[in-house]
Simulated assay, not measured.
Amino acid sequence: MLGGAERERHAALPPTRRRRHLLGRIAAKDAVRRLLWAEGADEVYPAEIALHNDDSGRPVVTGVHGRDLGEGLTVSLAHCAEAAVALARRGPCGIDLEEVTARPAGTVDAACGPEERALLARTVAAGDESEALWFTRFWAAKEAVAKERGTGLGGRPGDFRVTAARQDLLRVEHAGSAWEVRCGQVAAPAGLPERMYVVAWTTGGAEPVSQSVSQSVSQSVRRAGMTTEATTPTTPVADESTVLARIAALLRELPDAGLEDAEIGRDTLFHDDLELESIDLVSLAGLLREEYGDRVNLALFVADLELDEIIELTVGRLADYVVASLRATEES
């Protein structure tokens, strides 16, 4: 499945990351092979397809051992728990995979703006499906569009707004354009832990958003009485060791992150050591907001970081930010 250079990169990964890395590579190479077969190619072997990430973290495929992949081939992949998905096509595309699970109460507030929360509430009330399932659809759609753009969410999931939703199709708006995002559900195969996943994908085709549509959505939200209120901080203590211990406890509370027994200290890396997904960081943002109020905004903190800083972010650096934010409020 992997070529020589890919095997070396795989072997150099921490053991906890190897399975997901391999699952993603298998899914991506299978997606490319299926595309090439649909275009009339004969046998295509996995080792003839090399996969790496560019400087922004976006997957890039190239042909090796004489295999020509042609022009304009793009691939997007996602993995979650024991599953992985990928999409390949001639043109832009983005795909995401998320497990359907209950999230901390503050997660929705951290991930969605007031207009989205109103839409989410109306959608849940109109049917018999859970908020957990609908929120997972919203989140996966945001991620799919962010991947199609090649930017990621950048710590600002609220900038990618779901403005219309049904079970199989959502509309996401960002920076004056809109995307249609297809959506489906899939269960884990037999023999694996019982999980239900949402898969969301888009193949580009962004179109400008008319001003009249944006205004009508805002007006409907105001008529529904949706407002954004500041939360009251519950823990005013700004002591480094106390904050660090509290962040570690909140991380262990994250649903399905598998951190219940994890050793978490100042030097623990969110990316390499804890292997947190974007949705986990949003859940953490919600928990921090519940704990400390609006004085601590994880989304804004991450948005100011460069990609390499995000990858190297430690629990200690986050704790320092929280302490500084709390003390700045106390002094003002």
Rank of each mutant, 00 (worst) to 15 (best):
G4N: 07
H10I: 03
A11M: 00
A11D: 00
A12W: 01
P14N: 03
P15W: 10
P15V: 15
R20D: 15
R20M: 14
L23T: 06
G24N: 01
R25E: 09
K29P: 06
A31P: 03
R33T: 14
L35S: 11
L36Y: 03
E39Q: 13
A41E: 14
E43D: 15
E43H: 12
Y45T: 15
A47L: 15
I49K: 02
L51S: 03
D54C: 04
D54L: 08
V60H: 06
G66H: 00
R67K: 12
D68V: 13
D68C: 13
G72N: 05
T74I: 01
A78M: 03
E82L: 13
A83C: 12
A84G: 02
V85I: 04
L87G: 02
A88E: 11
A88R: 02
R89V: 13
R90Y: 07
D96T: 05
E98D: 00
E99T: 12
V100E: 03
A102S: 13
R103K: 09
G106Q: 04
V108N: 04
V108Y: 02
D109I: 13
D109H: 04
A110F: 06
A111E: 02
G113T: 11
P114W: 02
R117I: 08
R122M: 05
A125K: 12
A126T: 14
D128Y: 02
E129D: 11
F138H: 04
E143W: 00
A144K: 04
A146D: 01
E148F: 01
E148I: 04
E148Q: 07
R149T: 02
T151R: 13
G152R: 03
G155A: 07
R156L: 11
R156K: 14
R156D: 07
R166P: 04
E173A: 08
G176K: 10
G176D: 08
S177N: 12
A187R: 15
L192T: 09
E194Q: 14
R195E: 00
R195H: 12
R195Y: 02
V198I: 11
V198Y: 09
T202F: 09
T203G: 08
S210V: 03
S214C: 06
S216P: 00
S216E: 01
V217W: 12
S218P: 01
T227H: 13
A238T: 06
T242H: 15
I247T: 05
A249N: 07
R252Y: 00
L254E: 06
A257T: 13
L259T: 06
A262M: 04
E263W: 07
F270G: 03
L274H: 09
S278T: 06
I279T: 13
V282I: 12
L288D: 10
L288N: 10
L288T: 14
G293Y: 01
V302G: 08
L307Y: 11
L307Q: 10
I310H: 01
L313A: 10
L313W: 10
A319F: 03
V323D: 15
S325E: 11
R327S: 14
E330A: 15
E330N: 09
E331W: 08
